[in-house]
Structure formats: structure tokens, C-alpha cells
Design a protein around this nucleic acid. Structure first.
Lengths: 104, 104
DNA sequence: GCAATAATTCGATATTTATCGAAATATCAA
DNA sequence: TTGATATTTCGATAAATATCGAATTATTGC
């Protein structure tokens, strides 16, 4: 979880993820699109890879990067837990509401 | 979005959110539970408040902190966009699958 | 008003981090 | 092999950040 939130914390990295959502890209293409140098992009891709948010595929002298959505779901599950398993008072109210809707 | 991901990036702050999920707490109670000093907790609560992840309610000499789930949903929406609006090839495949399921 | 309690702000510090230019590594093409 | 291109690694640096002790602010109860 730590490496995931760390990876998501930077605006440039989030921009990279948004780009990879549309299509997989090489490091060079990413560097052209983002307003940072190539060494910086390389560093960002490293952090995204550590978090398993992106996967690297080597194609000759290029390296193509893909988005990995499965770990994105992991974050969503954690966040969902924050919303779902909430205070007893609210859980009680939710149960009451449900009962009113399901009983005749 | 920036302040939200920044707030979520620290393990202590995530622990605070998990505690507030169960019940609202005072700064002192949080400091007792977490393994950090009171000034540090105060700082973390400040960052969580900037991200609107927690809300402060003054009760005499105490300050009670509540979890605000609405912005948690904002993060989930952003993450969901990463999953949903995916590559055209996959979208096409999904459409095909849907058609096979809905047509006679 | 005054002592006690809750919490924050202040000042300092050590660590992490984003960034870049230069150098190194790796692959392709001729 | 040699030159060109893609990408990373290295070294340095400036900025952000988590943490603490001490001092400060705010509120309660006597």
C-alpha cells in the first residue's frame, strides 16, 4: 500500500497513468508529452513500476510501458473500506433504511 | 486532487483515517493510539483537514475529528476513470462481448 | 483570577524526493 | 564494427516533509 500511494502522490506520475490509460507508450513518448526531462521520466517510471502500476515490455531499443489496472483496484478496495465499514450509528441507519425498502 | 493524494501518502495519516472510520476521536486520543508525539499528530490532522478528509468539531477544550467520506469518493472516481476508460482495443472487445450476450 | 488540561505553533533537524546534465548501457541499421 | 538512437544510471542540488521538544494559545473548574 505504501508504494502505491507514494506512486500516486506525484502529479507528473498521475499524468503518465492517464496517458497510459489511453494507450501504452515508450519512455521517450512520455518524456515528450510531460514537461520534464528524460532522466526524470525514467525515475517516475521506476517508481510506478515498483508500485506495479505500470509494466515494462522491451521492444528492441524501445521499452513500451503499459498500465496495470489490477493494483488500482487494490487502492479502491482500501478506500472503499474507509467508506463502507463506518460508524455503528450510520450502519444502523443504513440497515433501517434497507429494511423499510425490502419489507411489504 | 493533489492535497488528497498527499494526505493519503503517509502511513500514520492512513492509520488515523482507519481509526476515524470506526469513531470520531480527539487529537489526544489519536496521539495515544499512534506511535508519534502530539505535535506530529497535530500536523497530520492539519494536512488531512486541508484535503478535507477530516473535519474538526470544537467541544470545549477538546477538538473532535470526524472522517469525511465524500472526498474519499472523489479519489475513487479518479481511480475508476483509470480503469474504465481504457484502450480502444479493449473497449472494442468489451463491446463485442456485450453484443454477443444481448443479441439472440 | 489561576492552576490544570488540550491542542497548536515555533524552531530545528534529518530524511526523502523531484529534477537536471553528463556519462554509461543497450539495441538497431548500415 | 561503427554510428545513431533509446533509455537508464550517476552525482548533485534544491525543495518538501515527518518528527520532536519547548513555548504558546485556549478553555475549563475552582
Amino acid at each position: 500500500m505504501n508504494s502505491l500511494f507514494k506512486a500516486l502522490n506525484d502529479p507528473t506520475r498521475r499524468q503518465i497513468l492517464e496517458m497510459l490509460r489511453v494507450q501504452s507508450l515508450t519512455a521517450g513518448e512520455i518524456a515528450d508529452a510531460c514537461q520534464v526531462g528524460k532522466p526524470t521520466v525514467s525515475h517516475h517510471l521506476d517508481i510506478l513500476r515498483q508500485a506495479e502500476l505500470v509494466e515494462e515490455e522491451r521492444q528492441g531499443q524501445f521499452r513500451r510501458y503499459h498500465l496495470n489496472t489490477s493494483v488500482v483496484e487494490d487502492v479502491m478496495v482500501w478506500l472503499g473500506g474507509l467508506i463502507e465499514a463506518t460508524k455503528p450509528a450510520i450502519k444502523k441507519a443504513a440497515a433501517k433504511k434497507l429494511k423499510a425498502r425490502t419489507s411489504p
